[in-house]
């Protein structure tokens, strides 16, 4: 009998397949797309919080001299929004987010920087240059008469004290606070002004849609373009891109209007989970079914090999 060449042939086929795959996938993508490493949402360019905050004093500032509730709702503390989302967007360009969850969504040092200088923390100074009279719609906090760093730390401590802890912060809460005012997600029925309810009367549905359109007009004027619907961005951009983009949008799109949102690492994971729920909903089912199918197919292959052996016994 001649020497069996099949292992060598198989090795050649596999080799060329892998080379081709490597060239058109990992290699081509490494050449086409800029690779940005995550910094772990540490915001190294922003100063650390040096003072230890006091939540009780912080509450008074947030509700009073800090002026936050003049623009923001804090429903958790019984503070409703000063105006509805559409009106707010007409005045500020965008609806200032409800601060109930801010303490656990945003990084503490980011919040402190944001309160003092929003345009800087949000990395939108290219759009809002105070020296040219371009004011960011969120007014900076200029101090309430005491030690400003202490006051800011107090407000951050207060926001953290009312915010949900750990698992209490759901993926939807993280998304709605951090991204929801700009990005719709129609697979989850999320619009920039909230989750779209199911209406009994058609008129009510149309009235709601009209409000969304009005809101989007203001947002478009403010941002220069309508921020995209993120329903299946998890498939078009992938987790790594979204995370590093959120960490610093300027990394990828120089001069973009999307602010650095300032979420902390845990909240970023929650946002990703939300995007996976909307755009890769069946991932758990896929993994479970995948394991079962693999086991079944391996058994099939074993039987096929045994059958071949049996049939071919007489052929040699």
């Amino acid at each position: 009998m001649k020497q069996n060449k099949e292992p060598l042939i198989l090795a050649i086929v596999v080799f060329f397949t892998i080379v081709t795959y490597y060239l058109v996938e990992p290699f081509a993508h490494s050449q086409m797309h800029k690779h940005v490493e995550s910094e772990g949402f540490e915001y190294k360019d922003l100063p650390e919080l040096t003072k230890k905050g006091d939540a009780t004093r912080g509450k008074d500032l947030v509700m009073g001299a800090g002026g936050c509730t003049g623009c923001h709702a804090i429903t958790k503390a019984g503070m409703p929004a000063p105006m509805d989302a559409v009106t707010a967007a007409a005045s500020y360009g965008v609806n200032p987010p409800d601060l109930s969850n801010a303490g656990s969504v945003y990084s503490a040092k980011f919040l402190a920087s944001l309160i003092k200088n929003p345009a800087h923390a949000l990395m939108v100074e290219h759009k809002f240059d105070a020296s040219k009279g371009q004011m960011h719609p969120m007014v900076p906090f200029y101090g309430a008469g005491g030690d400003m760093d202490q006051e800011v730390a107090d407000m951050v401590a207060y926001l953290e004290s009312i915010a949900p802890k750990g698992e209490e912060l759901t993926p939807a809460m993280a998304y709605e606070t951090a991204c929801g005012r700009c990005h719709a997600n129609h697979y989850e029925k999320w619009t920039q002004i909230g989750t779209k309810p199911t209406f009994k009367k058609k008129q009510d549905g149309l009235a709601f849609d009209t409000k969304v359109l009005d809101y989007q007009d203001s947002l478009k004027a403010y941002m220069g373009k309508l921020p995209p619907d993120l329903s299946i961005y998890i498939r078009s951009r992938g987790e790594h891109y979204i995370k590093t983009f959120v960490e610093n949008p300027q990394n990828y799109l120089k001069g973009t209007a999307m602010p650095r949102v300032g979420v902390n690492a845990e909240a970023a994971d929650k946002v990703i989970e939300y995007l996976e729920d909307s755009g890769d909903t069946k991932r758990h089912e896929r993994e479970a079914v995948g394991m079962n199918v693999m086991i079944y197919i391996i058994i099939f292959a074993i039987f096929a090999i045994l059958w071949k052996k049996q049939v071919w016994r007489d052929l040699h």
């Binding site: 197919i297 099939f300 292959a301 074993i302 039987f303 096929a304 090999i305 059958w307 071949k308 071919w312």
Partner: peptide, 8 residues
């Protein structure tokens, strides 16, 4: 039989 083995 061999076809099926390869298919498997």
């Amino acid at each position: 039989a061999k076809d099926m083995m390869v298919v498997g």
